[in-house]
Design a protein around this nucleic acid. Structure first.
Lengths: 194, 194
DNA sequence: GCTTTTTTTTGACAATTGTCAAAGGATTGC
DNA sequence: GCAATCCTTTGACAATTGTCAAAAAAAAGC
């Protein structure tokens, strides 16, 4: 759990007791690429902290695979709407690389929230970080061209882009793989020219 | 504060003491249409609960006015990224109707969060609701056509659509007012035909 | 190393949406 | 009631992005 607490310490430090309580309900799992963390259509009962590796949250819309979110090291993978609302959701989660993840169940987390004010505080901070991230992602989609979105992404997360097939990046950006391919070729000639 | 607590009670009931503490830091303001609740470029120090009326959160992107969010009765108006991160943001908030709002400052809220576990719980629930709403809005933008987005909106919030100039609805949906106008005329002939 | 599969690129064309300009309508303020 | 302002619609055309089909390139499996 070192990586987990190193991360959470940056915005909410916990007492040793609270850390112990959290550690006690966290299960570490080492899983291969391709593993399904959440089946599409199911209720999301776990939140996963990615210590090593990479996952994607996705869903099928009109027969097409849409990548909704990518989670690399030191971030969380969860179907957030399902996890919060306790309702099934079309979103699924799968691993794109061999990974080491920490899983915490909704029920265990709720118990800890009720029991430890400081863990509830951590939870509030985590959701708050989440909403800030989602808002940034939303803003990009709202009124930026496909090219602007791609450039923002490679600037902000170059490592993730290079670890993931472009088809997934395309749907993450809300465009087709063909359009992304064209943006990239235009972009690379523009870069070379300099 | 009756409307406020009637709303929050639906997902987090507070003790009388906690309600009193919250009420003590909440300021009620009756303000006219056009009033600026938050200046663009400033840090958002207040979260507003709309008891009556309507507000919009907006920003200027490439010289164009973009409506980011609409808040009607029994919902919150806030520049969420700025409020959480304590950084200035391009977003501003203005009233679209004469309104009655309750304002709570960030500092007061933080104090109450630290003081009352149950208010921190309420805060976590509020952000959680917020992230669910934002995710739904995001999903629509991600892979739906302009027409699908418009139809979802009039189905989900017909009252808001009718109270707001279409220019604002258009940018809320991520399209131009001309496109929205065309969608509407196509839509109304389609509806009449039935 | 070679085959198979997956991923990425390219081409031709279609659909959607945006841009610019102008004209109607509706509302507001006096 | 009328002028001024704001809001909405319409038209012509351009730009962006999507769709379908196929080829090229890269990666994976044996």
């Amino acid at each position: 759990m070192d990586a987990f607490f190193a991360y959470t310490d940056t915005f909410a430090k916990l007492s040793p007791e609270a850390k112990d309580a959290l550690a006690a309900v966290s299960k570490c799992r080492q899983l291969p690429k391709g593993e399904i963390l959440l089946r599409p259509g199911a209720v999301c009962h776990y939140i996963y902290f990615i210590e090593k590796g990479l996952s994607r949250t996705y869903y099928i819309k009109d027969g097409k695979d849409v990548t909704d979110w990518l989670s690399a090291e030191n971030s969380f993978a969860v179907s957030i709407v399902s996890f919060i609302s306790r309702q099934p959701d079309i979103r699924g989660i799968e691993l794109l690389e061999d990974s080491i993840v920490w899983a915490i169940s909704y029920q265990d987390l709720e118990k800890l929230y009720a029991q430890y004010h400081e863990i509830e505080h951590l939870g509030r901070m985590l959701v708050s970080m989440g909403i800030v991230q989602l808002q940034h992602r939303f803003d990009e989609l709202h009124f930026a061209t496909a090219q602007q979105r791609y450039e923002t992404l490679i600037t902000a997360h170059p490592n993730v882009v290079n670890r993931v097939p472009l088809v997934l990046i395309a749907s993450y950006l809300g465009i087709t793989q063909e359009t992304l391919s064209r943006i990239r070729s235009a972009h690379s000639t523009a870069t070379k020219r300099k």
